[in-house]
Each structure stands twice: as structure tokens, then as C-alpha cells.
């Protein structure tokens, strides 16, 4: 028997078995889908929390206050060094621009600032920090070294906020790891139990195949194909359910989403999520079938 005809036989057997006993396959696909939806929800929730942390972190800035006698070359050199070290954009803020901003922030009270005989604010450099540069320890070190420069009078980078943000991010990472592990473990147990149940119903077929001379591989391959098909189908169904869920959330919870600075839209990388669902669905279907069929091969 050629490889092609063998594959055709395995394919026919797998599809034939699905057609012959649709109920057990529906149960298996349903349990796989539920497990994948659980995984997808956990994944989407994690992505929203990441987006939230990013949104909050968008305001992290490093501000360097310059002395009045700072030479333009020294300032330019510092600008370049800060860009290189942080990867962020550096803006030079004049005393007049700083005073204008302060006046805007103070509102009505800001008008009093116009009556000052002299602008008391210094020249400064503002660095908007990208995500990768928001490490509290590294910024502390950068801040200390910058402050030590003779033409720098002070450095501010919202140390306290940054430390808190770091703690939140770490807590989210641990929490999501725990949730992922629980969802995955539950999925493996549920899926494997369901597939065992489905294969238990066909133990006689396996027994007869073995008694008429089928090798373990010959018996196993159609079951693995079925597991693979179930995984694919389940991942498609789970993806559809997640798309529906996200659309519904976006339409019915636009207010809370806006509050969470998500502009009324959930942050979901659909191609990546789809890939993960297909990968995990197929892996669960294959491994579940492999484990389940192994029990009945000893004839």
C-alpha cells in the first residue's frame, strides 16, 4: 500500500468514524472548544491588562532641569546621550513653554504667573520613556549620573509611580501565569477524559483491529487524525465565540473601556490568538487521543 493510499485510508477511516458516531465527536469538540474559549478569555484579559499598564506607563517621563549657564554643546551632548540610553524622544523645553504649561495646568490661578517680574523656571529636557526603558533601577542609575553633571540642577522621573507600575506588571504576570496554568490543566483533564470516553465506545473496534493483525500505529493514526480534526474544528468554534464575545463587550461596555484608556476597543491580536488557538487545539486533540487510545491497545 503506497503512502498516499495509506493516508487516504486513514483519512477515510477518521471521517467515517466521525460520521458514524457524531454524538461522541460533538461532545469531544464541545469540551475542546470550551477549554479553548477559557484559554482565549484568559489571553484577551491579559492583553487588556498589558494595554492598561502600557497606557499608564505612557506618561512616564524623565525631566532634566538645566542650569542657567549650561552651554548649548553640553546640552546637545546630553540630549544625544539620553536618546541613546533610553531609546526615547528628547524635547528641549524653554522656560517660557514651561511657564505656559504651568499656567494652563493652574487654570484661572495661572493668570497670576503673568504678573511675575521674571520667569523663575529653568530650561529643561523631557524624555518620553518607551516601555523597554521603564526599569526603575536603570532609571535611578541614569538619574544619579545625570544629576552629577555640573550643568544639571535636578532630575525627576516619577520614581514612586514607576516602582508601583513595576509591581502591578509583576503581579499581573504571576496572576496570568496562575490563570493560564489552571485553565490549561483543566482543559487537558477535561479533554483527555472526554476523548477517553469517546474512544472507550470504540474499544471493540480497536480490539478487533488488533486481533486481525493491525499494528499499534495502524490503529492509532485514524484516532490521531480524528483528534487533529476535532482540535481544528474546536479552535475555529472557539475563535468564533471569542470574536462574538469581544464585539459584544466593545459595543456594550464602551464606557468602562474608555475609562481604561482603550478607546472603546479591546486590544486583541487576532492573527496571533488564532494561531495559538489552532496550535493548542490541535495539540490537545492529538495528545488527548494519543493518551486515550494507548489504554486500549493492549490486546
Amino acid at each position: 500500500m503506497s503512502v498516499a493510499s495509506k493516508l487516504a485510508y486513514f483519512g477515510r477511516t477518521a471521517i467515517g468514524s466521525i460520521v458514524r458516531s457524531p454524538f461522541v465527536h460533538v461532545i469531544a469538540v464541545a469540551s475542546l472548544s470550551l477549554a479553548l474559549v477559557g484559554f482565549g478569555v484568559a489571553r484577551i484579559a491579559r492583553a487588556q491588562l498589558d494595554a492598561l499598564v502600557d497606557a499608564l506607563g505612557g506618561e512616564v517621563e524623565l525631566t532634566v532641569y538645566l542650569a542657567e549657564d549650561a552651554a548649548p554643546e553640553q546640552v546637545a551632548e546630553l540630549e544625544q546621550a539620553l536618546t541613546q540610553r533610553t531609546g526615547g524622544e528628547v524635547h528641549r523645553i524653554s522656560p517660557a513653554e514651561a511657564l505656559g504649561r504651568l499656567a494652563t495646568q493652574l487654570g484661572e490661578d495661572g493668570k497670576a504667573l503673568t504678573e511675575l517680574p521674571q520667569n523663575p523656571l529653568p530650561w529643561s529636557l523631557e524624555v518620553r520613556l518607551p516601555k523597554a526603558a521603564r526599569d526603575a533601577e536603570a532609571l535611578g542609575e541614569l538619574s544619579r549620573r545625570t544629576r552629577a553633571l555640573p550643568f544639571v540642577t535636578g532630575v525627576d522621573y516619577g520614581e514612586e509611580a514607576l516602582v508601583r507600575l513595576g509591581l502591578i506588571a509583576r503581579a499581573l504576570e504571576v496572576a496570568s501565569l496562575v490563570v493560564f496554568s489552571l485553565v490549561f490543566l483543566t482543559a487537558v483533564i477535561v479533554v483527555s477524559a472526554t476523548l477517553q470516553l469517546a474512544i472507550f465506545a470504540r474499544r471493540e473496534e480497536i480490539e478487533i483491529q488488533k486481533l486481525v493483525g493491525a499494528t499499534d500505529r495502524f490503529v492509532r493514526v485514524p484516532f490521531l487524525l480524528e483528534g487533529l480534526l476535532q482540535g481544528l474544528l474546536a479552535s475555529g468554534l472557539a475563535l468564533g465565540a471569542l470574536v462574538g464575545l469581544v464585539r459584544w463587550l466593545e459595543s456594550s461596555a464602551a464606557g468602562p473601556l474608555a475609562f481604561a484608556r482603550l478607546d472603546g476597543q479591546l486590544a486583541v491580536e487576532w492573527p496571533r490568538l488564532a494561531g495559538e488557538l489552532v496550535g493548542i487545539g490541535c495539540a490537545l486533540g492529538l495528545s488527548g487521543s494519543f493518551i486515550a487510545v494507548r489504554r486500549f491497545l493492549r490486546v
Binding site: 468514524s17 458514524r20 458516531s21 471493540e204 473496534e205 480490539e207 478487533i208 483491529q209 488488533k210 486481533l211 486481525v212 493483525g213 493491525a214 499494528t215 499499534d216 495502524f218
Partner: peptide, 28 residues
């Protein structure tokens, strides 16, 4: 399995697959 391929067995309880036709059972 390779030894069993040279042995035909008629079981007391027949061991026929109810989900397959008679011809499919024979062709198994």
C-alpha cells in the same frame, strides 16, 4: 500483529462491528 495476519479467528461472540456494513466487517 505480523504473526496474527496468518491466523483467521472465528469468535464465539462474532466480534462484528455494528457501525460497519457486513462487507466492511469482512474487509476489515
Amino acid at each position: 500483529p505480523f504473526l496474527r495476519r496468518n491466523i483467521g479467528v472465528v469468535f464465539q461472540d462474532f466480534k462484528l462491528l455494528p457501525t460497519r456494513t457486513v462487507a466492511e466487517n469482512v474487509g476489515f
